[in-house]
């Protein structure tokens, strides 16, 4: 198994809220901004819909990184869903610590509908970060 930057293509699951971040990802696409083809975007109505179970399921099914994205603080269309997302991501990160899955594989970012470039930049950065970590131990057949 290789975790060299050239060899290893991580799989990254992105949860994107319907009202801001998904539109941000869309904008990155229609603006033809380049970012790594490592993402699998899952649209949710709000970042507050994401649960620890969702994030852990992604890792169980083979994700190397999970990015939760939502509207900037104050902009959530359900008022406080993104505040719940902060709690969820924090809690899940601590569960991951016990599981031995590096918490750096999980990230929370606010991306508005106008921030296509920001979406692309975060995806590039996060891909590099996960690439450096290599695949999760969950896929290590030698263990």
């Amino acid at each position: 198994m290789t975790n060299q930057a050239e060899g290893f293509q991580p799989r990254i699951v992105v949860f994107a809220c319907n009202w801001c971040s998904y539109a941000g990802a869309d904008l990155a696409g229609v603006s033809r901004i380049q970012y790594p083809p490592t993402t699998r975007v899952i649209r949710v109505m709000c970042s507050g819909r994401v649960t620890p179970g969702f994030i852990l399921e992604a890792f169980r099914l083979g994700a190397d990184g999970v990015l939760v994205t939502g509207c900037h603080p104050g902009d959530c269309h359900y008022i406080s869903g993104n505040e719940n997302a902060v709690v969820t991501v924090d809690k899940t990160g601590r569960l991951m610590n016990v599981l031995g899955i590096e918490a750096a594989r999980l990230r929370l970012e606010w991306i508005s509908a106008a921030e296509g470039a920001r979406f692309a930049r975060i995806m590039t950065e996060f891909t590099e970060q996960v690439q450096a970590l290599g695949p999760t131990a969950l896929k290590d057949t030698t263990l």
Partner: peptide, 25 residues
């Protein structure tokens, strides 16, 4: 219908995989 959005089921599923836990903290 699992409680806590099935987080325990997910944890059990992951524990069945080859992991290196840090559970003695």
């Amino acid at each position: 219908t699992y409680a806590h959005n099935a987080v325990m089921q997910e944890l059990m599923g992951i524990m069945a995989l080859p992991i290196r836990q840090k559970r003695t903290g």
